[in-house]
Computed example of a mutant assay.
Amino acid sequence: MKLFISIMLTLQLCITSFTANAESINYYVIDKQAMPFQITTDSEKHSGIVSDIISCIFMDNYTVRYHTYPFNRMISELEAGREKNWVTFGSPGWGGVQAANLSDIPIYTVSHSILTSAKSDFIYRDLKDINKKILVLLYGFDYPNLQPLIDSGEIKELRVKDYAAAFRILDKMPQDSAFVEMTSRIKYNLKIQSRDLKQYKLQDFSALIPSYPIYLALDPKMDKDIQKFINQKLSNMSDSGSLTEIIHRYI
Protein backbone atom coordinates (compact mmCIF):
# COMPACT_ATOMS: atom_id res chain seq x y z
CA MET A 1 0.00 0.00 0.00
CA LYS A 2 2.81 2.39 0.93
CA LEU A 3 4.56 1.55 -2.35
CA PHE A 4 1.35 2.30 -4.27
CA ILE A 5 0.93 5.66 -2.52
CA SER A 6 4.59 6.49 -3.21
CA ILE A 7 4.19 5.66 -6.90
CA MET A 8 1.01 7.72 -7.15
CA LEU A 9 2.68 10.73 -5.48
CA THR A 10 5.64 10.45 -7.86
CA LEU A 11 3.31 10.30 -10.86
CA GLN A 12 1.40 13.30 -9.56
CA LEU A 13 4.62 15.30 -9.21
CA CYS A 14 5.69 14.32 -12.71
CA ILE A 15 2.32 15.33 -14.12
CA THR A 16 2.48 18.64 -12.28
CA SER A 17 6.01 19.25 -13.56
CA PHE A 18 4.98 18.36 -17.10
CA THR A 19 1.98 20.67 -16.90
CA ALA A 20 4.15 23.55 -15.70
CA ASN A 21 6.63 23.05 -18.51
CA ALA A 22 4.04 22.38 -21.21
CA GLU A 23 3.13 26.06 -21.44
CA SER A 24 5.46 28.51 -23.17
CA ILE A 25 5.87 32.12 -22.12
CA ASN A 26 6.01 34.58 -25.01
CA TYR A 27 8.27 37.45 -24.00
CA TYR A 28 8.13 40.58 -26.16
CA VAL A 29 11.22 42.77 -26.50
CA ILE A 30 11.58 46.24 -27.98
CA ASP A 31 14.47 46.21 -30.42
CA LYS A 32 17.34 48.64 -29.67
CA GLN A 33 15.23 51.37 -28.00
CA ALA A 34 14.52 50.08 -24.49
CA MET A 35 18.00 49.88 -22.93
CA PRO A 36 18.74 49.28 -20.08
CA PHE A 37 15.36 47.58 -19.56
CA GLN A 38 15.71 45.36 -22.63
CA ILE A 39 19.10 45.00 -24.31
CA THR A 40 19.46 43.19 -27.63
CA THR A 41 22.61 42.32 -29.57
CA ASP A 42 23.38 41.06 -33.06
CA SER A 43 24.04 37.64 -31.53
CA GLU A 44 20.44 37.64 -30.29
CA LYS A 45 21.48 37.48 -26.66
CA HIS A 46 19.09 39.20 -24.29
CA SER A 47 19.89 41.12 -21.13
CA GLY A 48 18.71 44.22 -19.29
CA ILE A 49 16.60 44.83 -16.19
CA VAL A 50 13.32 43.39 -17.49
CA SER A 51 14.95 40.56 -19.45
CA ASP A 52 17.00 39.45 -16.43
CA ILE A 53 13.85 39.50 -14.26
CA ILE A 54 12.05 37.36 -16.83
CA SER A 55 14.97 34.89 -16.94
CA CYS A 56 14.99 34.65 -13.15
CA ILE A 57 11.22 34.11 -12.86
CA PHE A 58 10.97 31.38 -15.49
CA MET A 59 14.39 29.78 -15.09
CA ASP A 60 13.22 26.36 -13.90
CA ASN A 61 9.53 26.21 -14.75
CA TYR A 62 8.66 27.41 -18.24
CA THR A 63 10.14 27.74 -21.70
CA VAL A 64 10.52 31.39 -22.71
CA ARG A 65 10.10 32.28 -26.38
CA TYR A 66 11.58 35.65 -27.35
CA HIS A 67 9.87 37.98 -29.84
CA THR A 68 11.92 41.06 -30.77
CA TYR A 69 10.36 43.91 -32.76
CA PRO A 70 10.56 47.69 -33.19
CA PHE A 71 8.22 49.34 -30.68
CA ASN A 72 5.23 50.03 -32.93
CA ARG A 73 5.40 46.55 -34.47
CA MET A 74 5.55 45.00 -31.01
CA ILE A 75 2.40 46.84 -29.94
CA SER A 76 0.62 45.70 -33.11
CA GLU A 77 1.61 42.10 -32.42
CA LEU A 78 0.36 42.26 -28.84
CA GLU A 79 -2.92 43.85 -29.90
CA ALA A 80 -3.41 41.15 -32.54
CA GLY A 81 -3.17 38.50 -29.82
CA ARG A 82 -1.43 35.92 -31.98
CA GLU A 83 0.49 34.46 -29.05
CA LYS A 84 -0.93 33.55 -25.66
CA ASN A 85 0.61 33.96 -22.22
CA TRP A 86 2.75 36.89 -23.32
CA VAL A 87 4.69 39.22 -21.06
CA THR A 88 6.57 42.50 -21.53
CA PHE A 89 6.74 45.64 -19.39
CA GLY A 90 4.36 48.55 -19.01
CA SER A 91 2.78 51.17 -16.78
CA PRO A 92 -0.77 52.35 -15.98
CA GLY A 93 -0.23 55.71 -17.68
CA TRP A 94 0.89 54.15 -20.97
CA GLY A 95 -2.56 52.83 -21.78
CA GLY A 96 -3.41 50.06 -24.24
CA VAL A 97 -1.98 46.55 -23.95
CA GLN A 98 0.93 47.78 -21.84
CA ALA A 99 -1.49 48.82 -19.10
CA ALA A 100 -4.34 46.31 -19.39
CA ASN A 101 -3.00 43.69 -16.95
CA LEU A 102 -0.01 44.48 -14.76
CA SER A 103 1.96 42.53 -12.15
CA ASP A 104 0.96 42.97 -8.52
CA ILE A 105 4.10 44.91 -7.65
CA PRO A 106 6.22 47.34 -9.70
CA ILE A 107 9.72 46.45 -10.80
CA TYR A 108 11.18 49.97 -11.04
CA THR A 109 10.30 53.65 -10.74
CA VAL A 110 11.31 55.81 -13.69
CA SER A 111 12.05 59.50 -13.80
CA HIS A 112 12.61 61.78 -16.79
CA SER A 113 15.35 64.30 -17.42
CA ILE A 114 16.15 66.91 -20.03
CA LEU A 115 19.64 66.63 -21.52
CA THR A 116 21.47 69.50 -23.20
CA SER A 117 25.00 70.16 -24.32
CA ALA A 118 27.39 71.52 -21.71
CA LYS A 119 28.08 74.30 -24.23
CA SER A 120 24.53 75.54 -23.77
CA ASP A 121 23.60 78.05 -21.07
CA PHE A 122 20.15 76.45 -20.81
CA ILE A 123 18.65 76.00 -17.35
CA TYR A 124 15.23 74.40 -16.99
CA ARG A 125 12.98 76.10 -14.45
CA ASP A 126 9.55 75.98 -16.02
CA LEU A 127 7.70 75.52 -19.29
CA LYS A 128 8.64 78.86 -20.83
CA ASP A 129 12.31 77.84 -20.74
CA ILE A 130 11.76 75.19 -23.44
CA ASN A 131 9.44 77.21 -25.70
CA LYS A 132 12.31 78.16 -27.99
CA LYS A 133 14.03 74.79 -27.89
CA ILE A 134 13.70 71.91 -30.31
CA LEU A 135 12.83 68.90 -28.18
CA VAL A 136 14.49 65.72 -29.40
CA LEU A 137 12.26 62.66 -28.81
CA LEU A 138 12.46 58.99 -29.77
CA TYR A 139 10.28 57.57 -32.54
CA GLY A 140 7.45 55.34 -31.40
CA PHE A 141 7.20 56.54 -27.81
CA ASP A 142 4.37 58.69 -26.50
CA TYR A 143 4.84 61.60 -24.11
CA PRO A 144 1.26 62.45 -22.96
CA ASN A 145 2.29 65.49 -20.91
CA LEU A 146 4.21 66.96 -23.84
CA GLN A 147 1.84 66.12 -26.68
CA PRO A 148 -0.71 68.94 -26.07
CA LEU A 149 2.17 71.44 -26.10
CA ILE A 150 3.52 69.95 -29.32
CA ASP A 151 0.07 69.93 -30.95
CA SER A 152 -0.49 73.58 -30.02
CA GLY A 153 2.87 74.60 -31.48
CA GLU A 154 4.26 75.79 -28.14
CA ILE A 155 7.03 73.22 -28.43
CA LYS A 156 8.81 72.00 -31.55
CA GLU A 157 9.72 68.30 -31.70
CA LEU A 158 12.32 66.39 -33.66
CA ARG A 159 11.95 62.61 -33.67
CA VAL A 160 15.00 60.37 -33.93
CA LYS A 161 15.38 56.60 -34.23
CA ASP A 162 17.94 56.05 -31.47
CA TYR A 163 20.08 57.60 -28.74
CA ALA A 164 23.16 58.03 -30.92
CA ALA A 165 21.15 60.30 -33.23
CA ALA A 166 19.83 62.28 -30.26
CA PHE A 167 23.33 62.87 -28.89
CA ARG A 168 24.60 63.94 -32.33
CA ILE A 169 21.88 66.59 -32.58
CA LEU A 170 22.82 67.98 -29.16
CA ASP A 171 26.44 68.18 -30.32
CA LYS A 172 25.54 69.90 -33.61
CA MET A 173 22.86 72.23 -32.20
CA PRO A 174 24.00 72.88 -28.61
CA GLN A 175 22.06 76.13 -28.16
CA ASP A 176 18.83 75.05 -29.83
CA SER A 177 18.13 71.43 -28.90
CA ALA A 178 17.26 69.43 -25.79
CA PHE A 179 16.69 65.69 -25.41
CA VAL A 180 13.88 64.47 -23.15
CA GLU A 181 13.99 60.84 -22.00
CA MET A 182 14.06 58.52 -19.01
CA THR A 183 17.02 59.38 -16.80
CA SER A 184 18.15 55.75 -16.58
CA ARG A 185 18.11 55.35 -20.36
CA ILE A 186 20.07 58.57 -20.94
CA LYS A 187 22.80 57.60 -18.47
CA TYR A 188 23.04 54.04 -19.74
CA ASN A 189 23.31 55.03 -23.39
CA LEU A 190 25.87 57.74 -22.71
CA LYS A 191 27.92 55.11 -20.89
CA ILE A 192 27.81 52.40 -23.58
CA GLN A 193 28.61 54.94 -26.27
CA SER A 194 31.65 56.12 -24.26
CA ARG A 195 30.32 59.65 -24.02
CA ASP A 196 31.39 61.76 -21.05
CA LEU A 197 28.43 63.01 -19.00
CA LYS A 198 30.50 66.15 -18.27
CA GLN A 199 29.99 67.14 -21.91
CA TYR A 200 26.25 67.40 -21.21
CA LYS A 201 23.89 68.85 -18.64
CA LEU A 202 21.27 66.54 -17.13
CA GLN A 203 18.37 68.31 -15.43
CA ASP A 204 15.32 66.93 -13.66
CA PHE A 205 12.14 67.06 -15.75
CA SER A 206 9.73 65.55 -13.22
CA ALA A 207 7.74 68.78 -12.90
CA LEU A 208 6.36 68.15 -16.38
CA ILE A 209 6.71 64.34 -16.53
CA PRO A 210 6.29 63.04 -12.94
CA SER A 211 8.06 59.87 -11.86
CA TYR A 212 6.00 56.71 -12.18
CA PRO A 213 6.35 52.95 -11.61
CA ILE A 214 6.74 50.33 -14.31
CA TYR A 215 5.51 46.77 -13.99
CA LEU A 216 5.55 43.52 -15.89
CA ALA A 217 2.73 43.77 -18.43
CA LEU A 218 0.85 40.49 -18.81
CA ASP A 219 -1.48 39.01 -21.38
CA PRO A 220 -5.02 39.94 -20.19
CA LYS A 221 -6.04 36.36 -21.04
CA MET A 222 -3.02 34.78 -19.35
CA ASP A 223 -3.56 31.45 -17.62
CA LYS A 224 -4.43 32.28 -13.99
CA ASP A 225 -1.96 29.76 -12.55
CA ILE A 226 0.88 31.27 -14.60
CA GLN A 227 -0.10 34.77 -13.53
CA LYS A 228 -0.18 33.68 -9.88
CA PHE A 229 3.24 32.05 -10.35
CA ILE A 230 4.71 35.26 -11.82
CA ASN A 231 3.40 37.45 -9.01
CA GLN A 232 4.64 35.06 -6.34
CA LYS A 233 8.12 34.84 -7.88
CA LEU A 234 8.27 38.62 -8.26
CA SER A 235 7.27 39.07 -4.62
CA ASN A 236 9.96 36.60 -3.54
CA MET A 237 12.57 38.46 -5.62
CA SER A 238 11.57 41.74 -4.02
CA ASP A 239 11.76 40.31 -0.48
CA SER A 240 15.13 38.63 -1.07
CA GLY A 241 16.73 41.71 -2.60
CA SER A 242 17.42 40.01 -5.94
CA LEU A 243 15.16 42.50 -7.74
CA THR A 244 17.29 45.39 -6.47
CA GLU A 245 20.44 43.46 -7.34
CA ILE A 246 19.32 43.11 -10.97
CA ILE A 247 18.55 46.83 -11.21
CA HIS A 248 21.98 47.73 -9.83
CA ARG A 249 23.66 45.73 -12.59
CA TYR A 250 22.61 48.38 -15.07
CA ILE A 251 21.87 51.58 -13.14
Score class of each variant (00 low, 15 high):
Ser51Ile: 08
Asp52Tyr: 04
Ile53Val: 15
Ile53Leu: 08
Ile54Arg: 03
Ile54Phe: 02
Ile54Trp: 01
Ser55Thr: 07
Ser55Tyr: 02
Cys56Leu: 15
Ile57Cys: 05
Phe58Cys: 02
Phe58Val: 01
Phe58Arg: 00
Asp60Thr: 09
Asp60Ile: 02
Asn61Gly: 02
Tyr62Ser: 00
Arg65Phe: 05
Arg65Lys: 08
Tyr66Cys: 00
Tyr66Asn: 02
His67Pro: 00
Pro70Met: 00
Phe71His: 13
Asn72Cys: 01
Arg73Pro: 03
Arg73His: 10
Met74Gly: 05
Met74Asp: 02
Ile75Gln: 08
Ile75Val: 10
Ile75Glu: 03
Ser76Tyr: 02
Ser76Gln: 12
Ser76Ile: 04
Glu77Met: 14
Glu77Gly: 05
Leu78Met: 12
Leu78Glu: 01
Glu79Ile: 00
Arg82Ser: 10
Arg82Glu: 10
Lys84Ala: 04
Asn85Met: 02
Asn85Thr: 03
Asn85Ile: 00
Trp86Ser: 03
Val87Cys: 00
Thr88Ala: 10
Thr88Pro: 07
Phe89His: 15
Phe89Glu: 12
Gly90Arg: 11
Ser91Lys: 08
Ser91Tyr: 15
Ser91Ile: 06
Pro92His: 14
Pro92Trp: 08
Pro92Leu: 11
Pro92Phe: 07
Gly93Tyr: 03
Trp94Thr: 07
Gly95Gln: 09
Gly96Arg: 11
Gly96Ile: 06
Val97Ala: 05
Gln98Leu: 15
Ala99Cys: 05
Asn101Asp: 12
Leu102Tyr: 13
Ser103Asp: 03
Ser103Gln: 05
Ser103Gly: 07
Asp104Glu: 09
Asp104Val: 06
Ile105His: 10
Ile107Gly: 12
Ile107Asp: 08
Thr109Asn: 13
Val110Gly: 05
Ser111Arg: 14
His112Ala: 11
His112Asn: 14
Ile114Cys: 11
Leu115Val: 12
Thr116Asn: 15
Ser117Val: 04
Ala118Met: 07
Ala118Val: 14
Ala118Arg: 08
Ala118Trp: 04
Ala118Leu: 01
Lys119Gly: 08
Ser120Trp: 14
Ser120His: 13
Ser120Thr: 10
Asp121Thr: 13
Phe122Thr: 06
Phe122Glu: 08
Ile123Leu: 15
Tyr124Glu: 09
Arg125Asp: 05
Arg125Gln: 08
Leu127Gly: 14
Asp129Glu: 11
Asp129Asn: 14
Ile130Trp: 11
Ile130Gly: 11
Ile130Phe: 09
Ile130Gln: 10
Asn131Ala: 12
Lys132Gln: 08
Ile134Pro: 00
Leu135Ser: 05
Leu135Arg: 02
Leu137Thr: 07
Leu137Gln: 11
Leu137Gly: 04
Tyr139Cys: 06
Gly140Glu: 01
Asp142His: 13
Asp142Thr: 03
Asn145Lys: 12
Leu146Trp: 10
Ile150His: 09
Ile150Glu: 09
Ile150Asn: 04
Asp151Phe: 11
Ser152Ala: 15
Ser152Gly: 12
Gly153Lys: 14
Glu154Arg: 15
Glu154Leu: 15
Glu154Tyr: 08
Ile155Arg: 06
Glu157Ser: 15
Val160Asp: 04
Tyr163Phe: 11
Ala164Cys: 04
Ala164Thr: 10
Ala164Phe: 01
Ile169Ser: 01
